[in-house]
């Protein structure tokens, strides 16, 4: 029996640092086929539905009532596919975390990084960056495809028209915030079905549900719901009672930060 203590020598001498955890999370993200499939689906939904709506409007334009024509905004119209894309991104954001819980991978992840919080920050950073790039790129493609379709009736607009650049790039930012909210909800709930349901609930059900409130209350609640506040950034002109674009998006970011902080507190405290 030897009593000399073994000294690790074959694995370098690196310590755990946030940039290294970010690298690890990037490897994890890119090495799952589901990541890429979901991103492609999100891009296809954004571009495909945008093109479909533009084509439908263009082909029915001559028969549209005057008020519908007056309300038509070509920039927003070409980006309508976001409504579907945000669900794909929300699901992927939840899965980035809950996929680890359902497979047991989380124990390996937290053993490697026992301080835990770097794992959450790295996941948010990697997923946020990937979502921003993919969302912004597909929104730009959707915009240009949509406008080229609308050009058939000379209904198209350009990035230089007032507010259009903000709407187009704002849509990429909105989808990124949705992705981060999903990462936080996934961490809080730790369960795929529950996480996805809560993302749907917050983004889609809450606005519908609030329609049932008396209208005098609605004005004080509806504009401040996460999805409505954030989507203010993606509207060329604001509806009555809607928040201004940047304050609205700022409020959504506030919700995201609160959710991430809650997720961090829970991740740090709970048994894995």
């Amino acid at each position: 029996m030897s009593t000399a203590t073994y000294v690790s020598k074959r694995a370098g001498d690196g310590k755990v640092t946030l940039p290294r955890v970010v690298t690890a999370e990037w490897i994890k993200f890119r090495s799952l086929r589901s990541s890429w499939i979901t991103l492609v689906v999100a891009a296809a939904l954004t571009i495909g539905f945008g093109a479909l709506f533009c084509w439908a409007t263009m082909s029915r334009w001559d028969h549209l009532p005057a008020e519908e024509r007056a309300a038509f905004t070509p920039a927003e119209h070409s980006l309508r596919g976001f409504f579907m894309a945000q669900m794909a991104i929300g699901v992927l954001g939840v899965l980035v975390v809950t996929g680890e819980y359902s497979t047991g991978m989380i124990r390996a992840s937290l053993s490697a990084v026992p301080k835990r919080l770097p794992v959450l920050w790295a996941k948010a950073l990697v997923f946020g960056a990937v979502t921003w790039v993919v969302a912004t790129a597909s929104v730009l493609v959707a915009f240009f495809v949509g406008q080229s379709i609308l050009a058939g009736k000379h209904l198209d607009t350009t990035l230089s028209a007032p507010g259009v650049t903000r709407v187009v790039f704002g849509m990429g930012l909105y989808l990124t915030a949705v992705g981060l909210l999903a990462v936080a909800l996934g961490t809080l709930i730790r369960n795929t079905a529950g996480g996805i349901a809560s993302v749907f609930g917050v983004l889609m059900v809450l606005p519908l549900l609030s329609e049932a409130l008396p209208s005098s209350w609605q004005d004080h609640i509806v504009p401040y719901l996460p999805s409505n506040a954030g989507q203010a950034l993606t509207h060329v002109t604001q509806a009555p009672h809607e928040m201004a674009p940047w304050p609205g998006f700022g409020l959504l970011c506030g919700y995201v930060v609160v959710a991430l902080v809650a997720a961090a507190a829970v991740l740090k405290r709970r048994d894995a």
Binding site: K15, T17, I27, M105
Partner: peptide, 12 residues
């Protein structure tokens, strides 16, 4: 890839 991700956290 599993091992590469774990290794990355320590610069292994």
């Amino acid at each position: 890839n599993h091992l590469l991700a774990l290794a990355a956290t320590h610069g292994i």
